[in-house]
């Protein structure tokens, strides 16, 4: 079965991104497909490579990057939500005249259409949020 996942809360502030991560890991372990993980609202903050959590805490962004690499996951950050919150890739930073980007490896920034497309293509869409 094909799952589409929405993460709509920021990391550390809320358990949502942890729950989503545990769900995705379990779904993959059971042989399901995860067609996309879409990060929306404050969930876009999961994709910054500049966070420095204490060493004895879980590394949320690194966990997603590693899981994404292992299973070739499509980790999509909503561009509209990302621009509001200061999450940029190299192209966006250039286009907007900003002096830096901060997107982490394995994530990509794209439009809200990716969320709708995920809903159309996935057998089940599940949202982790507040």
């Amino acid at each position: 079965m094909k799952f589409g996942i929405v993460v709509s809360e920021g990391p550390y502030q809320h358990q949502a991104s942890d729950s989503a991560y545990n769900f995705v890991k379990a779904a993959l372990a059971k042989g399901h497909e995860v067609s996309r993980v879409f990060f929306y609202h404050d969930g876009v903050n999961v994709g910054t490579r500049l966070s420095i959590p204490p060493q004895d805490d879980r590394q949320i962004q690194e966990q997603w990057t590693a899981l994404g690499k292992e299973h070739d996951l499509d980790l999509v950050i909503c561009i509209a939500a990302a621009q509001r919150r200061g999450l940029l890739d190299e192209n966006e930073a250039k286009r907007q005249g900003k002096d830096a980007d901060n997107i982490a490896e394995g994530f990509r920034i794209s439009g809200l259409g990716q969320l709708i497309e995920m809903g159309i293509q996935a057998d089940r869409t599940i949202t982790f949020g507040d």
Partner: peptide, 20 residues
Amino acid sequence: VDYEGFVDLSATHDRVQNWL
């Protein structure tokens, strides 16, 4: 249930509605 049970419940029902 554990997370695998969560996945099973999602798969065996027709849709998932998350009350946020």
